[in-house]
Amino acid sequence: MNLFRLAGDVSHLLAIIILLLKIWRTRSCAGISGKSQILFALVFTTRYLDLLTTFISFYNTTMKVIYIGCSYATVWMIYAKFKATYDSNHDTFRMEFLVIPIAALSLLVNHDFAPLEILWTFSIYLESVAILPQLFMVSKTGEAETITSHYLFALGLYRALYLMNWIWRFFAEGFFDLIAIVAGLVQTILYCDFFYLYITKVLKGKKLSLPA
């Protein structure tokens, strides 16, 4: 464990909690893509199946359980508890356009052709693009609430910090995982445009809105 990885995990946790609290306290999931949240629930479920087979550390297990739990709680709030506030008209991204090609890719490009390993690979690939329905929704409505912007920033920052962690681990331990690195790069690149808007607008106290 190095500082980049810890900071990445904390940033990831913060993102998930910001989103949960935003929905819970405003009793509304307006502006949030339920589809991205379903994809994240799928990401955590397929990645953390090793909870049942391998024990890595108390930290590792605890974080995995929290991520999965929060992720399902978010999906439940969007599709059940606060369903009336869910903006489904603007959440029109087709999930199958991501899930099906990624399932195929994870069968073709993986470290080992074993069920758990393929599911792990699927989750890594899927995570890299799971935010697309949310970004699509923001671009469609042309704006995002400030709290939603904080959520997106923390979520994007997490993988960027993991990139630093992988550079660190490569030099410190000779460890590298090409699948995670390439997917992590793609994931971080997808957020770059948003990072720019966040820094130039939200941090200066303005609401995130896109030019018409």
Partner: peptide, 10 residues
């Protein structure tokens, strides 16, 4: 390699 791969990251 026979051993199951371990992914120690989250």
């Amino acid at each position: 390699e026979d051993e199951e791969r371990q992914h120690d990251e989250l």
